[in-house]
């Protein structure tokens, strides 16, 4: 990966990224185990080259897009984003990636498309977590088309200017910074444009706990814990709790996507 030009346009002053070590050793990636340190320990064996993304559904140019080919058509930039996990912890990550809209436009989104469905690699021989039915594999996620086309929504291929570590979703993953982390699906192999809301893994597992939208919202609690505050990773044993912000601090950019929508019902 080449050295990047200027820092992201969406990075705000004073947003200090977590360290490389923090970002790459504390992960939720159940394909490699349910412990936070399991992905780092178990993801080394994942083959990420060759890699292709199958783009299908309501697009003009469906097919298998080779990763190298995808990357030759986009310009990578750094985006320093807050990441808020549904478990009430957070980080700041300097992603390297490009806007998802660039890829979707390349595939040619048809007017009838309303949603985008994503799928993670299914390869139990390299992903030990998939040998247990913790979730219904493969992991799937979804966005409304306007969310997917939003300029904040990126596909990331690296962090800290380096290639994406396997435990963080190599070689290519989604990043939707105003939604809880699990929406930002990792190791993407398939993108499908649809006219119906696609199923999503955590929603299927516990529909009362994880909604399709899963926008960061301090006013809508998870049934098992409050979402009003979060703890920033890296503060040690006396790390303070800080207030969680609406849309994870990106309200100015994304609140209009949900004008008039009941965010309590559509959590």
């Amino acid at each position: 990966l080449s050295v990047l030009a200027a820092p992201a346009h969406s990075a705000e002053a004073g947003l200090e990224p977590n360290t490389w070590d923090e970002i790459t050793s504390y992960n939720n990636f159940y394909e490699f185990g349910t412990g936070k340190e399991d992905p780092k320990r178990n993801a080394g064996q994942l083959t990420t080259d060759p890699w292709a993304i199958q783009i299908d559904g309501l697009v003009d140019r469906p097919g298998s897009y080779d990763l190298g080919d995808i990357l030759s058509g986009v310009s990578l930039e750094e985006r320093i984003y807050r990441l808020r996990c549904v478990e009430a912890w957070s980080m700041v990550v300097p992603w390297v990636g490009f806007e998802l809209a660039d890829l979707l436009n390349r595939a040619g989104v048809q007017p009838s498309a309303k949603y985008v469905a994503f799928q993670t690699l299914l390869r139990p021989e390299e992903m030990p977590g998939q040998r247990t039915a913790i979730l219904d594999w493969p992991y799937v996620e979804g966005l409304r088309l306007d969310e997917a086309m939003h300029p904040l929504t990126i596909l990331a291929t690296g962090l800290y200017g380096k290639e994406m570590p396997n435990q963080n979703g190599a070689p290519i993953r989604l990043v939707v910074p105003w939604k809880y982390g699990f929406k930002s699906i990792k190791s993407v192999v398939r993108i499908t444009l649809t006219d119906a809301q696609p199923p999503t893994s955590w929603n299927r597992y516990a529909p009362n706990e994880y909604g399709f939208y899963s926008n960061v919202n301090p006013e809508v609690d998870h049934p098992r814990w409050s979402q009003a505050t979060e703890r920033r990773i890296g503060g040690g044993v006396f790390s303070p709790r800080v207030p969680t912000r609406m849309f994870n601090g990106y309200a100015e950019e994304v609140a209009s996507l949900y004008d008039g929508m009941d965010l309590m019902g559509n959590f």
Partner: peptide, 15 residues
């Protein structure tokens, strides 16, 4: 361990 980094980067939950 928690005080010296041995419980990882989020020692409170680990503890």
């Amino acid at each position: 361990l928690g005080a010296t980094g041995g419980l990882g980067v989020e020692p409170i939950t680990a503890l």
